[in-house]
Amino acid sequence: MTPVELSRTVLRAVRRAVDDGELSVAVPARVVVERPRPGGCGDYSTNVALQLAGPAGRPPRHVAELLSRRLADSPGIAGVQVTGPGFLNLTLADDDPGALAREILARGGGYGGSDVLAGQRFEIRIPYEVRAEVVADSLRRVLATQGALAHVVQGETAEPSAAHVVRLRPVPAPRDPAVLGRDASRWALLLPAAHDRPRIDDEHLAQRESNPLFRVRYAHARTRALTRSAAALGFTAEPGDVRGTASAPATAGAPGEAVALHTALSAHPRTLTLAASHHAPDRLARQLVVVADALLGFQHTVLPQGEEKPSAAHRARLALAEAAGSVLAGGLSLLGIDAPEHL
Rank of each mutant, 00 (worst) to 15 (best):
His268Asn: 07
His278Asp: 15
Pro239Val: 02
Ala193Cys: 13
Ala254Asn: 00
Glu238Phe: 08
His164Ser: 15
Asp282Thr: 10
Pro177Ser: 10
Gln207Trp: 13
Pro172Trp: 01
Trp187Asp: 00
Val259Asn: 11
Arg243Tyr: 05
Ala280Pro: 01
Gly234Asp: 11
Pro192Cys: 11
Ala144Gln: 08
Leu265Ser: 02
Ala148Thr: 07
Thr223Asp: 03
Leu149Asn: 14
Ala248Glu: 07
Leu180Glu: 04
Ala144Phe: 07
Ser277Cys: 13
Ser247Leu: 15
Leu180Pro: 00
Gln146Ile: 03
His268Gly: 02
Gln287Asn: 12
Ala280Ser: 14
Val171Leu: 13
Pro255Phe: 02
Thr245Lys: 09
Asp183Ser: 08
Ser161Lys: 11
Thr251His: 04
Glu238Lys: 13
Leu233Trp: 08
Leu168Lys: 06
Leu274Met: 14
Leu274Pro: 05
Pro177Thr: 09
Arg286His: 09
Ala232Gln: 14
Pro281Val: 07
Ser277Asp: 13
Ser161Gly: 12
Val216Thr: 06
Gln146Trp: 02
Gln287Arg: 06
His204Val: 05
His220Trp: 05
Thr157Ile: 11
Arg224Ser: 10
Trp187His: 04
Tyr218Asn: 01
Ala248Tyr: 01
Ser229Pro: 09
Pro160Gln: 12
Glu209Pro: 08
Thr271Trp: 00
Val171Gln: 07
Val179Thr: 15
Ala150Cys: 08
Pro269Ser: 10
Ala206Val: 11
His195Ser: 15
Pro177His: 03
Leu272Asn: 04
Leu265Gly: 01
Ser185Asn: 06
Ala162Met: 14
Asp196Trp: 14
Ala285Leu: 03
Ser229Asn: 14
Arg283Val: 09
Trp187Val: 03
Leu272Ala: 05
Arg141Cys: 03
Ala178Pro: 00
Gln146Glu: 11
Glu159Thr: 15
Leu149Asp: 15
Thr145Met: 04
Val259His: 08
Arg270Val: 09
Thr273Ile: 10
Gln154Ser: 14
Glu159Gln: 15
Gly234Cys: 11
His262Gly: 02
Tyr218Ala: 00
Arg243Glu: 03
Ala225Ile: 06
Arg169Gln: 14
Leu284Pro: 00
Ala163Tyr: 04
Pro198Glu: 08
His279Pro: 01
Ser277Tyr: 10
Ser229Phe: 13
Ala150Lys: 01
Ala144Asp: 08
Val152Trp: 06
Arg197Gln: 13
Glu203Trp: 05
Asp176Lys: 11
Leu233Gln: 13
Ala162Phe: 10
Arg228His: 10
Val179Gln: 15
Pro170Trp: 05
Leu233Gly: 10
His204Pro: 00
Ala280Cys: 11
Thr236Met: 12
Ser277Gln: 15
Arg169Ile: 11
Gln207Val: 11
Leu180His: 03
Ala275Ser: 09
Pro160Gly: 12
Pro269Trp: 00
Ala246Cys: 13
Arg175Ile: 07
Ala148Glu: 04
Gln146Gly: 03
Arg215His: 07
Arg197Cys: 07
Arg215Pro: 03
Ala163Ser: 07
Leu180Ser: 05
Glu203Ser: 10
Ala231Leu: 12
Ala258Asp: 02
Ala178Glu: 13
Ala144Arg: 07
Ala188Ile: 01
Thr227Ala: 14
Glu238Ser: 13
